[in-house]
């Protein structure tokens, strides 16, 4: 028995050591999460407008176009529970905060990162934000959440090719540019992906928005809720019931909290084909348009 244990440990030891070394190497690679966490640690006290949300705000709202001191703390696939956790983590440091900009999209109340197909991104909140995203062990280490093949590629890209691994701007906007993909096809596929027959997370997600609004109220901060613009192929394929339920909940909560306002850009005609990188994400020109509109709202100017 003892012999078996020693031999097994001896056999596995090189594997464990190699993986620990790899974990350390990966953690030293800067990424959006570590960058934004460090930015918030250092600059939270200066931020006047905080943007939260998923890829719709990551690619869709550029703080450069805001007159107030703005930071975009959204991440791809970030669900509303994580928006709340980020706000909770920094609320005491956000001493100058005047407003939060938070997209509530078609899927927001139906989706959680921890239970969705992008669950592997959850480790970024545990490892880099030190936020307890889930109790899943795989969320506690890079090497446990992503395959060896991808991790080796990340190490090679950073250490050997010295390529940039942060994909957001200094103010947190997702500036990565890729050519436009088929708006018709992505409209169908994205709407399908965002439509849920049922959702066990619905009630908790609505409650989470309530908590965000309550926290903001306690902080004496305004919350600007918005539904992001999308291309017609996406809008046309949405489930009307899911959309209606979402809008009903938003309006109910906006009425409950006087410190909140809601703007629906989903079918805003001012966003043209060329403003989209795919059917539900804006490109740089689209994000400039949306950011300026939001800035006008914030600054109290009238919309054209």
């Amino acid at each position: 028995m003892k012999n078996f244990n020693l031999k097994t440990i001896g056999f596995l030891m090189p594997v464990v050591l190699a993986f620990l070394a790899l974990e350390a190497l990966i953690r030293y690679i800067p990424n959006d999460y570590s960058y934004k966490k460090n930015y918030l640690d250092d600059n939270a006290k200066n931020i006047e407008t905080l943007i939260l949300g998923s890829s719709h705000s990551y690619y869709g709202i550029n703080p450069e176009y805001f007159k107030s001191t703005t930071f975009n703390a959204s991440h791809i696939s970030q669900s509303i529970d994580l928006d709340y956790k980020i706000l909770q983590k920094y609320k005491d440091d956000l001493t100058k905060l005047e407003r939060i900009v938070l997209p509530i999209d078609y899927f927001t109340f139906y989706y959680r990162l921890s239970t969705g197909v992008e669950f592997w991104r959850g480790k970024n909140y545990d490892i880099y934000y030190h936020i307890n995203n889930s109790n899943r062990i795989t969320d506690k280490a890079e090497i446990l959440s992503i395959g060896l093949k991808k991790n080796i590629k990340r190490v090679k890209t950073h250490y050997l090719k010295t390529e940039e691994s942060i994909t957001c701007s200094k103010l947190g906007y997702g500036y990565i540019e890729i050519p436009q993909v088929s708006l018709e096809e992505t409209g169908k596929s994205a709407s399908l992906r965002h439509t849920y027959a049922t959702s066990i997370d619905f009630d908790e997600n609505v409650a989470m928005l309530d908590k965000i609004l309550k926290t903001a109220e306690d902080m004496e901060v305004e919350v600007i809720l918005l539904t992001s613009p999308a291309y017609k192929s996406y809008v046309e394929n949405l489930n009307s019931e899911q959309l209606k339920t979402t809008l009903v909940e938003i309006n109910r909560l906006v009425q409950k909290y006087p410190n909140s306002r809601y703007y629906n850009f989903l079918t805003d005609n001012s966003f043209m084909d060329l403003d989209f990188r795919d059917a539900d994400h804006l490109n740089s020109s689209g994000s400039k348009k949306l950011s300026l509109k939001l800035d006008y709202i914030i600054e109290g100017d009238s919309l054209n």
Binding site: F19, S145, G147, L148
Partner: peptide, 18 residues
């Protein structure tokens, strides 16, 4: 023999994550 087993382990981790 050990190299063979380690190769299998590396292959498993190489494709893990799905």
């Amino acid at each position: 023999r050990l190299a063979f087993y380690y190769a299998l382990i590396v292959a498993i981790f190489w494709f893990a994550g799905k």
